[in-house]
């Protein structure tokens, strides 16, 4: 399965993203696989976010990365479930409250030593407008305080393919990776420091907003 996954990212996703989007990255050296579990927290604008984040990793590391994604969207039937779990590499979470502990699969992936990509804003909001961060991420850190977080800020994907639009228009997207954060023992403090890092990353790359 790892081979199929590698082929998917190396031969389909990457060439597509490089030609039709183009990724302008900053501080990419900060994005790396740790020895054990690690969290990547990114902002969320577009369906393409997940693919772009995966492409930022070296090909040899891709099998160690998982994406947290909505079960109701990615696992609609047997085929999409198989594809999402094995090829894209998602950790499905239940947004509909059908399970007692929606974060359980995320915890499991972290216990298995994966680098897990999470979108702390939850669902994609209005494209290129930041949503207030949700507390889901703090619950993970509370349970596993030793895990560190690498924040990633992306801009431009919400221009290329915003939510609710089917028309894809090529735009170069900007990506900026922040310094590692760690849990300081308090929920609201983690949220505010993540917000602050996102602000700083956004400011540093001076994104072109829609007029």
């Amino acid at each position: 399965m790892n081979v199929l996954r590698l082929i998917f990212y190396a031969l389909l996703v990457r060439p597509f993203l490089i030609v039709f989007l183009g990724l302008n990255t900053r501080n990419l050296d900060r994005l790396k696989i740790r020895d054990g579990a690690h969290l990547i927290a990114a902002n969320h604008n577009s369906h393409l976010d997940a693919m772009v984040l995966m492409s930022l990793f070296k090909l040899k590391d891709i099998h160690r990365v998982k994406l947290v994604a909505a079960k109701d969207y990615f696992c609609r039937n047997a085929l999409s479930t198989w594809f999402s779990l094995n090829i894209i590499g998602i950790v499905p979470i239940d947004r509909k409250g059908e399970s007692d502990d929606p974060l359980k699969p995320v915890m499991k992936a972290l216990e298995d030593g994966y680098t897990v990509v999470i979108f702390p804003e939850g669902s994609r909001g209005e494209p290129e407008k930041r949503q207030p961060l949700k507390y889901g991420i703090t619950k993970i850190l509370e349970a596993k305080p030793e895990i560190t977080i690498t924040p990633v800020f992306m801009h431009g994907l919400g221009k290329a393919l915003p939510r609710g639009e089917g028309l894809f228009v090529p735009f170069i997207c900007e990506i900026n990776v922040g310094e590692e954060l760690s849990w300081a023992g308090e929920r609201s403090q983690l949220i505010s420091s993540l917000e602050a890092v996102f602000d700083a990353l956004e400011q540093e790359m001076e994104p072109k907003e829609w007029l």
Partner: peptide, 21 residues
């Protein structure tokens, strides 16, 4: 690639997406 770079650096409106296509 050049046109893509061009529209990515200039300020545009959301309404321009369809025209850019």
């Amino acid at each position: 690639l050049a046109f893509k770079e061009f529209i990515s650096i200039i300020p545009l409106r959301r309404a321009d997406r369809s025209v850019l296509f």
